[in-house]
Simulated assay, not measured.
Amino acid sequence: MANSKSTEEEPLRKVFNDAMKLFDKIENGKEATNSDAVQMTIKLAISKFEKATNLVSLAGVFSRNESLDELPTDTLEYLLLPALLGTLNLKLCGQPRKDVIHIAEIYFRDFLQRCKDYGVTDVEIPKAAEENDDKQSSSNIPQTNADKITAMVSSREAKIKRYKQTKELKEKLSTLTKAMESPNADDETKRNYFTTLLLNYVNQALDELNSIEEEKPLLEYMSKHGGEPKPKREIAPLKPVIITRDALQKAVYGQGYPALPTMTVEEFYDKRVREGTFPSAANIPHTTIQSSEADRDEADQIRKERLVEDDDEEERQRQRSMDEYKDDHRRGWGNRHNRS
């Protein structure tokens, strides 16, 4: 069994809890999702959930050889990470919508697959429309009207069943949430709560995948007829990352996601250090939890990036002045202390 009692457990818990607070604020907030404040909160929450995902891998919390019963109770909610990242990515604005739903789809499929691997659910993960088209064309058997009607009926029945299940799960979650508020909640209650929460997100993930499939042809139509607004400047495409524990897992997941960039924990951490998201290991241990001041710096960086994306004249002028200052004042030139 994977060792969850590692030195990473405490910082992982804090990072995850901080991210969940932001997630709940976003989900329950009244402000418009496309507002600057909410978008900055969404990006900050995504960043923290990515850090939590990295720490999960570093701590070796999960193993593909385990079943759900073998997982410690306090690690069950970490299975939610791909679903939470998928939910947040769907809320991003200012990015090409086609890229946004592509990333979210990968996260939701990864979440469903992991839940199947651990026996949380036995639900059939729906195929993407393009996969069905490829399968149909390779078989050279045209789909008849009867086949289409049968598929529609099956889909409708599945939606009705899922709707009823979701209603029952929410009622059960409401009861379990109250039980979890008690300081004397036992292990059985906690496992029941987290398992129910996972099943609830399984249904949400299925609904989101269905909505994504319905949105794809609309986006395709809009792109052909100039309906989707073009960004004012070139925006770097979103890139999802499935975190793996080692090179072997990287190869395994790479087979399941051939179009998805995968990387080991070390590769992921090095990449984040280069981007400035994580501190350098030479200065600060990567297990160190960033303080609230660091969180403010991160939010401030996101705000600056937002201003640049929106072609803010004042921000551009500030950066231009800083560049000119650096050109005329090289680092260390002003320090003459103890020099001849």
Rank of each mutant, 00 (worst) to 15 (best):
L79C: 00
R162N: 10
N132T: 08
P96R: 09
I106S: 13
E157V: 03
Q95A: 07
E130F: 02
S139M: 06
V100L: 02
N132A: 03
E105C: 10
R97S: 10
Q143K: 14
A128Y: 05
R109K: 12
Q143D: 04
N89F: 06
E131I: 00
G119Y: 00
G94I: 02
L80A: 12
E131G: 00
V100Q: 06
P96I: 01
V100G: 04
N140D: 09
I106Y: 01
L84E: 13
I160Y: 01
T121A: 07
I149D: 08
A128V: 11
G94D: 02
R97M: 08
N145S: 13
Q113C: 03
L80V: 06
K98S: 12
M152V: 11
H102Q: 15
L85P: 04
L88S: 04
S139N: 10
K116E: 08
P126Q: 04
D133Y: 09
D110I: 12
I106L: 11
K159M: 11
Y163V: 09
C93Q: 15
D117Y: 01
R97V: 09
G119K: 03
A151V: 00
A146L: 11
I149P: 04
K135V: 04
D117E: 13
S155Q: 12
A151F: 01
A83F: 02
F108K: 14
L80D: 09
K161V: 06
K159D: 10
S155A: 06
K91C: 01
K164E: 12
D99A: 02
A83S: 15
A129T: 14
K116T: 11
